[in-house]
Amino acid sequence: MLRRSPRTLLSVTSAALLVVGLSACGGTTKDSTDNSGSGSQASAAADPNAATKEGLKIAFLPKQLNNPYSDVEVGGGKVAVGEVKGEYKLVGPNDASASSQVSYINTLIQQQQDVIVVAANDPNAVCPSLNQARAAKIKVVTFDSDASKDCRDAFINQATTQGIGESLAKMALEQAGGSGEIAVLSATPNATNQNAWIEVMKTELAKPEYSKLKLVKVAYGNDDDQKSFQEAQGLLQSYPNLKAIVAPTTVGIAAAARYIGSSSYKGKVAVTGLGLPNQMREYVKNGTVKKFALWNPADIGYLAAYAGAALASGQITGAEGEKFKAGKLGEYTIGKDGEIVLGPPTEFTAENIDQFNF
């Protein structure tokens, strides 16, 4: 895997998770007497020279299990947890609905995890449970898709929201040939990250240089392959003059490419967005997709695990300006509102896609 620099992404991302059926029930927490709320953990000063604690229990809760993108992400997290000599755990729902993660968070609290690393399906639905975790002295790191900043300690962002949204708009313009109707095929209506990127994209599309493009529809495939395939099909039935489908989700872009590549629209309707090189290679090779982008998902999970370990070891509190080391990725500085940015996305084309394997 190629890496430009410790903070620059090499490639891009995905995930497969082993589901453990867990249910929420009453029980003791790490500190059942501490109900001081979400701000209670930020009172202690950070000690950047503190040793990383061994044996930390770090649990990953992605949006859903058996999702190629998430599989890659949590795989990177597992590697990092091993490097810090911690105990790795993976749990999660099979669907990406707004409330599907709540019972898992409650169970992780009962199991007295040291760190919960979660990709939120909904920015608010998980907050009450995450704040219960923080009151129980559990550090909370969000990755890929953020929760409300009031219920987590740090957020690992793939790239800046602005940068991703601008990249999606730029690729849409290029792939549509500068004019015509375009549509977005997103994940779920509540997905924090996709919604933020789409809003930036809409702002970009309002600029003069995009005046010949018309966004006609934002469809949702719920990060389900078959539903995304059907939504792509429905978009062409409703908008036969569509010039491009932009999918800011790896499941959506692959499903759209599969539909377009096997239909009479191949060569007429472009597909672009965010995807995994291994998943998209055949569609690039057969000419269905000319360009798409992504970061290295494994590095997102890897960085999230190191951030969680640094929080649980007292090296950082999540405050802006604090620094910590993230193994092979090097040193990172925490930004505003506890955001830690992995780096810019990489664009993939027929010329470079064989250089990447993930």
Rank of each mutant, 00 (worst) to 15 (best):
L173A: 10
L22G: 05
T317S: 13
V269R: 02
I300H: 08
S129F: 03
D47F: 06
R3M: 12
Q279R: 09
A119M: 07
F60Y: 13
I138F: 05
K291P: 05
I138V: 14
T142R: 01
A196N: 11
E209M: 13
S99T: 15
V91W: 02
A147V: 12
S186C: 12
S100T: 12
V118D: 04
M201Q: 11
I260Y: 07
V218W: 00
A244R: 03
E54Y: 04
K85P: 03
D224N: 12
A255I: 08
L185N: 10
L56K: 03
D299E: 15
Q112P: 05
S264C: 08
K290P: 00
V200H: 05
Y259K: 09
Q233M: 14
R152K: 14
L130C: 08
S14L: 11
A159V: 13
A350S: 15
L173Y: 11
V19H: 06
I164D: 13
A50V: 10
G21N: 13
Y265P: 07
N94V: 15
V91A: 04
V91D: 04
S43I: 13
V74R: 02
Y220C: 10
I334S: 02
V289I: 13
Q132C: 05
L130P: 05
N66E: 11
S211W: 04
N190P: 04
L205T: 05
F292R: 01
D71R: 06
V79K: 00
T333I: 07
G275Y: 04
A135S: 15
L18E: 13
L329N: 00
T13W: 02
E209W: 10
T192A: 15
A172K: 04
A183S: 15
A319H: 10
G163L: 11
I198S: 08
G321E: 00
